[in-house]
């Protein structure tokens, strides 16, 4: 297992290196420059600025400089926010987004699972249909619509939750709900489908015949087997949460990393684009690793296939 994880970590760094390289050269293809007054400055004035910020060097040199700094853990300073170190920006923004993301993930999957279990137990009943409708709505309507509706009804009409901003637990409730809708819908769908199949399989019938109680049957034998496909989709779900935060943070005026990412791309703020891209890539790869490890814990068969020791 340790060797397996080590191997995966090595791959992870290779992947990150490739992503860093690709995004560096892609980013340099963006039209325009990080200078806001670009259209107003003369060519000579722009030349002086390019020289000053080392943007005149040949691309390979810029790339090597960038990698050199990266290996020393230095992401540089922002162009738009004069002199602010990118590492510090990331460090203060990530916890906010992570807070929302984790809350939404936990609430979304737990409620989704419960909904799925209930729907599977009472399949083709009115409860099942209701759960189905919730899932379809959750999958098909984008989270920012929910966000807008929540904000208007809970924030303005009823006035029970703060409309926007960041600070207390109350501020996290609406963004969390808006973000949780998608994982909730997905997990409800997967758990239901899988559970119906598992509950119909031979070993469940056997267990039932042996007199295993309903609760044990459901959680020990049924749900555990039904979780595999859910774990598989958790990776994409986590990623969709990341992109979801880009929009949700904007609607609720939350100072997170997603909002910063969008702004940096709009303004050609190269150091921040690179910093956030690398962070998102790292996060995604990490999630995949965690899921692969989780597979092993949930399903011993995969553990054997994955690592020989």
């Amino acid at each position: 297992m340790a060797k397996y994880i080590f191997q995966r970590l090595v791959y992870m760094f290779i992947t990150l290196f490739i992503i860093a390289t690709a995004s560096f050269f892609l980013m340099k293809q963006l039209p325009g420059s990080p200078f806001k007054a670009e259209e107003k400055l003369s060519a000579a004035q722009l030349e002086i600025l390019y020289e000053k910020y080392n943007l005149n060097d040949p691309l390979p040199i810029q790339y090597l400089n960038y990698l050199g700094n990266l290996f020393q853990g230095d992401l540089g300073v922002s162009f738009q926010m004069n002199n602010q170190p990118v590492t510090e920006i990331l460090m203060s923004r990530i916890p906010v987004s992570a807070h929302l993301g984790i809350q939404a993930m936990i609430i979304g999957t737990i409620i989704g699972m419960l909904l799925g279990v209930v729907a599977a137990l009472y399949s083709n009943s009115i409860i099942d249909y209701a759960s189905n409708i919730i899932s379809v709505i959750g999958i098909s309507i984008p989270s920012f619509i929910f966000a807008g509706l929540l904000q208007y009804y809970l924030g303005v009409e009823l006035g029970i939750l703060p409309v926007a901003f960041w600070g207390s637990f109350a501020h996290t409730i609406m963004p969390t709900i808006a973000l949780a809708i998608f994982p909730l819908a997905i997990s409800a769908r997967f758990v239901r489908t899988e559970l119906i199949e598992v509950l119909g399989s031979d070993y469940i019938v056997t267990a039932r015949a042996k007199g295993v109680s309903n609760a044990t049957l459901m959680f020990k034998h049924g749900l555990r087997n039904a979780l595999i496909p859910l774990v598989t989709v958790m990776g994409p779900m986590a990623v969709s949460l990341m992109t979801g935060t880009l929009v949700i943070e904007q609607i609720f005026a939350v100072p997170g990393i997603g909002e910063q990412f969008v702004t940096s791309i709009m303004t050609d703020d190269f150091p921040i684009i690179m910093g956030t891209t690398l962070f998102f890539a790292f996060f995604f790869i990490l999630i995949i690793l965690v899921i692969d490890i989780l597979y092993g814990i949930i399903d011993p068969r995969i553990r054997i296939a994955g690592g020989k020791d």
Binding site: G148, Q151, Y152, G155, V156, G159, V163, A164, F165, Q250, I251, F252, A253, P255, E259
Partner: peptide, 18 residues
């Protein structure tokens, strides 16, 4: 001063008197 990028959020905050 707070940064709000969404027009609708600004309107909601205004409606709430914030």
């Amino acid at each position: 001063v707070n940064v709000v990028k969404e027009t609708s959020t600004g309107v909601n905050l205004y409606e709430n008197g914030e």
